[in-house]
Design a protein around this nucleic acid. Structure first.
Lengths: 326, 326
DNA sequence: TGGCGTCTTGAAAATTTTTCACTACATGCA
DNA sequence: TGCATGTAGTGAAAAATTTTCAAGACGCCA
């Protein structure tokens, strides 16, 4: 038996007209009464035909929640996603997280729009948000990040293999004091890139000569480079966990009159457009952005995957791009 | 007298149930009959309560149509706009124009979503799109571009004054062979920046020593630089109409062993994050992104401004940012 | 040809939305 | 202080819309 507004009115102790008014945008109703009506409606599973229509219209929308649009890698993701959705007549909603907020700051807004799926990138999913997505039957996908404690869908480059590839390359180049500038410590991108890098060094009987943290940003990455290059035994190679930091390392090295790669080999991760600029010519791992976007949308579109499932993870190979920095 | 579904049914020669089905997503109805019902409904001004609700929900949405998210200036615009809208409980829809398409490619999609306003950036508005916005009572605003033939709202940096400021600076620096790399010829950003630059040189009895076109892109800008620097009398200063091209010029100059700014002074326009990187330290005009975004949203929100009005233009001052490149 | 399944349709029933009269409350003015 | 006015919220009832259901049309297969 399908729930009706009449039942909502009975349970909430209001008139049927009040229930209808609660669901009609701009109709006069006491806000507290409106809240109560919505609570009861949700409890018994009632949704007005008008809201159902609004929901159906919104179902052709996918939402991107982006934690960092200043890193040139993520505008690429956004651009690719927008074009991909447009090709199938769909729309992209974008939420940009302020740098001092976590995703809980936008959870209510994001879910209120009833998108058919949510893609989160360069931000961590909170358990609050994960629960809310499940309750609202809205699928969420992490893009370029994996959170194993969250049971959430994820699409990521094979960061571990990328880290290995760079480690192998620097060893092959004969580098002796191979060092590392890491990203954000509690992210899978950082952890896996470092783990792959460290494993391949260990397999060759080597350890990371020196390590600093660059928070995935140019300025902090540059400070980390200055710190490492000031050591008594400075590195002769640095793997940076993303390109922006690697470009900062190159800048810092040049300021000290170091030649790239003769005095210092530098490698990054991402292959942002700036990596190919003449001042940098950065050797890096190219993330397969097109494929990653396709897979994320696929996960959302797959009818066999439910919002309440335990999460699927798809790992896609990156590609080593050789330029003159290492 | 408010139009009813009963009237639509009478005019279209169908039942009231058919009219309701036409407006209910997923309800079974012959597609041709559906089209006819919508046509009649539009003619007499009928919209079902369900569709009215969907429309009201969409009215808290603003759409950004972006022609170029690869230029780091525009992700900044997008990020600023998204955050600005979120603060007032609104949502941002994003459409990314493929590089071989004009805005007509997304007009139907964009308008079908019934946003409360459309912001177009790094793309030209077509007369088709302008007309469609007026018919649908949806306000459009050009951001960082002005099209005087379109009678459309626009918000822009004072490109003319910016061009003047750079010209004045290069003259003050004593540069003799002051040259120019332009952007995209039929854009207001190009035209005004060049005009300001040219006017200030003319006022000092000078002309532009040499000129090339860089299409606002790194690679083409670099080719233009190589061309200018290969001349018998190469420039000792180059003003590039955007930062990306200026960074490419610096790269090209360094490849030739030229010192910046002693052998070649370089200036740009935008103040993207990369302009402050150590390899570049670019002197440029900073566009007031926050203010521009605020003004664009203001134009959309202003109840006294109608979609059918002749268009308002707001010009905001940029700021000369001195670094070591000029 | 008959049976079955699918799609579309209008009449009628069910449900939702809107209208209207009323109440309560706040504000301004004499 | 009392009265008039305006605004916001409300439920009953009228109006409008949506859904249900039975019927017809059509295509396919044995």
């Amino acid at each position: 038996m399908k729930p009706t507004a009449k039942q909502v009115a009975h349970v909430a102790g209001v008139s049927i007209a009040a229930v209808s008014r609660a669901f009609t945008p701009g109709a006069p109703i006491n806000p507290e009464k409106k809240k109560k009506i919505f609570a009861v409606a949700e409890e018994i599973g009632y949704i007005s035909p008008a809201r159902r229509t609004a929901k159906a219209v919104a179902a052709s929308t996918i939402t991107l929640v982006a934690g960092d649009l200043h890193n040139p890698f993520y505008p690429l993701v956004l651009d690719t996603l927008a074009r991909h959705l447009q090709e199938s007549g769909r729309q992209l909603l974008v939420y940009a997280l302020p740098s001092d907020c976590n995703i809980d700051a936008v959870t209510d807004q994001v879910l209120a729009a009833r998108p058919s799926g949510i893609i989160v990138t360069s931000a961590s999913l909170t358990s609050n948000m994960a629960r809310a997505c499940r309750q609202n039957q809205i699928k969420a996908v992490l893009l370029n990040r994996i959170q194993r404690d969250m049971r959430i869908n994820a699409v990521s480059c094979d960061n571990y293999q990328g880290g290995r590839d760079i480690g192998r390359l620097l060893l092959d180049r004969g580098c002796q004091r191979i060092s590392l500038i890491g990203g954000v410590a509690n992210t899978s991108t950082h952890a896996e890139r470092v783990r792959g890098f460290r494993d391949v060094l260990a397999e060759a009987g080597r350890t990371i000569h020196a390590q600093a943290s660059g928070n995935y940003q140019y300025e902090i990455g540059k400070q980390a480079a200055v710190h490492l290059l000031s050591a008594v035994q400075p590195p002769d190679a640095i793997f940076c966990c993303n390109d922006i930091m690697a470009l900062a390392v190159i800048d810092a090295a040049k300021e000290r009159g170091l030649r790239i790669p003769q005095d210092l080999a530098v490698a990054g991760f991402d292959d942002i457009p700036m990596a190919s600029w003449s001042s940098y010519q950065l050797t890096t791992i190219r993330q397969p952005v097109e494929r990653m976007v396709q897979e994320a949308v696929s996960l959302i579109d797959d009818p066999n995957i439910k919002a309440s499932d335990n999460g699927f993870t798809r790992i896609l190979s990156g590609m080593l791009v050789l330029r003159s920095s290492a």
